[in-house]
Amino acid sequence: MADNRDFALRRLHSLLGVIPIGLFLLQHLTVNHFATRGRDSFNAAAHFMESLPYRYLLEIFIIFLPIIFHAVFGLYITFQARNNVSRYGYLRNWMFLLQRITGIITLIFISWHVWETRLAAALFGSEVNFNMMEEILDNPLMVGIYVVGVLSTIFHFSNGLWSFLVSWGFTITPRSQKIATYVTIGIFFVVSIIGLRSIYAFVYPEWFAFATNNLAIL
């Protein structure tokens, strides 16, 4: 089995990106989306997540360890490529390059985001709530960084889902891969709307309060 190590690690890398990391991303963005319903809704949702049973085990095995492995092995994969989009400007080759670029942006963003909203908060005993995010996002630069970081993460997830389907042999034919392309583009846009709405809910709480009161579907 020794010479199958690379195969096993690459398949593990592909799997972890979807389960559990991808699922966690969707769950995280969904909980964040409570911010669009106002301060109290978000605080209640955040508090519910904080008070889950065996919280540290969930964090370690569903979030930290999978992300650390995915990130370290992902960097190894990234620096093995010699990108050539200038010679071969095909859609999938661009996606290949963007997957690597967004992977690195996402790694930097997530490391800093985890430090700021989880580790530093735990070390210095500050409460993770609507106020905290409101203070973080009180200037355009930070809003910009969050928008780029969140969109990059969602792109990496959506396009990673496409290559997960190929790497495990779910989508084989060109037609099935093309359909998967359309579906993952759709996922990118839908999840991006969810992510961006959450960010701007901390920036313009009054606007979202108005919208929630007047537009029932939100």
Binding site: D6, R11, A81, R92, V166
Partner: peptide, 19 residues
């Protein structure tokens, strides 16, 4: 194919099929 440098090293850039 499951050995080192085999199938799993493919990154799905799909330049091969275009070329």
């Amino acid at each position: 194919l499951m050995g080192d440098g085999g199938l799993a090293s493919c990154g799905n850039s799909q330049n091969c099929v275009q070329s």
